[in-house]
Every structure is written in C-alpha cells, then in structure tokens.
Amino acid sequence: MQLRRHLLTLWSACAMVVALLAVGCTSQPTAGSSPGPAFNATDTAWILLMIPMAERAQLLTDLAPSRTADPSLAQLAAKTGSTLRGDLRRLRAVLRLSGAPDTHPHEGHDMPGMVSLGTLEKAAATNGQAFDRILIDALRADFTQSRLLCADEQTHGQADEATELAAAIARSTAEQITQLDKLRAAQPATSGDETTVAPGPDATVSRTSVASRTPAL
C-alpha cells in the first residue's frame, strides 16, 4: 500500500535523523563510522513506562527516613532512592535523544508492578514494621517488573542508548533485589494485623524514637 510505505518510511526517516544528530553531537566522527540504529516503538514504550515506575518508587523510598524503624532498611531505601534518581536522569536523557514526545501514557494510572497510589497512601499512614512490610513488598514487585521490562527491551528494543540503559538498570535492579531479599529474610514474622497510625502526635513521637535509635550513617 503506497500510503503505508510512505508513512512508515517517513517515521523511520525522522527517527534516523534524530539518531544521526545525536551521534554527531556526542562523538568524534571517524572514517567509516555509522550511526547506531534508530529508536523503535519498543524503545519508546519502555522509556515511557520506566519513567513513571521510577517516579512512583522514589515517592515510596522518600517516605522511609521518617517511617521505618529499621536502620538497614532506611539505608537500602536511601540507596534505592539515589539509584532511582540516577535512572530517571538517564531515562529522560534517552527520551530526549529519541525525539519521541512524552505523551505521559501511564500518568495517574497503576501499571503492573508499579507502586500504586493506594500503596503510597497506606505507606504514608503507617510507620514501624507495618511500613517496612509495605516498603519491602512494593519495592520487590517494582524491581521484579522492572527486570522483566528491561529484559524485554534488551531483546526487542533497537537503539543502543536504550538497550544499554536497560542492561544497566537490569543489573542494578538484580543487585537491589538480592539486598532486599536479605533484609526481608531478617524481618520479624508477621504478628497479627498491620497497625495503621494516622499522621499526628504519635507519628512525631515515632520519628523521635527512630532518630534516637538510628546510629550515625
């Protein structure tokens, strides 16, 4: 179909131009060098899903300092938060490189594995072991999905910048899962219902006691 060939060629041509411009800006052209492959639809879809997932996970890890009673978990949350911030920087950079518009396809929406809005609400309203359980379970689900998505991207994505970032995130996520599982194994066994503490004077008291028990990090 003439129309379809023209349309798809137009899209590939645009993507190619963007990739060419990107390579020109960031590397010394050598004789015989050629630009990397263009961004395909999987690359774009992967980036546009990874960004909101990382943003949501970061919202959760940001809650940890004031809510967890466990110093190792506080440390893991801090490390995860900083990894997520780095991932977000690189994801946004790759998105700019791709030239694809950010259509925010998943904004305000809970995707599989994503830390849900409900989870964030619950986490914000608890502290101590109840918070820890929420944090651990939600992060693990996020990491697991993240690893799956990065594996898919490496297999079916096209642009080197995207597939390489996927490989890097997959590696760091695998490490984080290992650390998380160690902490999870060390968690006390679940004892009855989770206690949900609404923000208020109690929360302030808990924060103070966490601060007094937490050794200097």
Binding site: N40, T42, A45, W46, L49, D110, P112, L149, D152, H156
Partner: peptide, 16 residues
C-alpha cells in the same frame, strides 16, 4: 494477556 501491541509493543507483561 497483560499485553498491548499498540501502546507497549515488544513488552509482554507490561500492560494491565
């Protein structure tokens, strides 16, 4: 399936 060939092509399991 948790798949979407329009919004999430090449990413099986990524979708609701």
């Amino acid at each position: 399936k948790p798949d979407d060939p329009i919004v999430l092509p090449g990413l099986p399991g990524a979708s609701h």
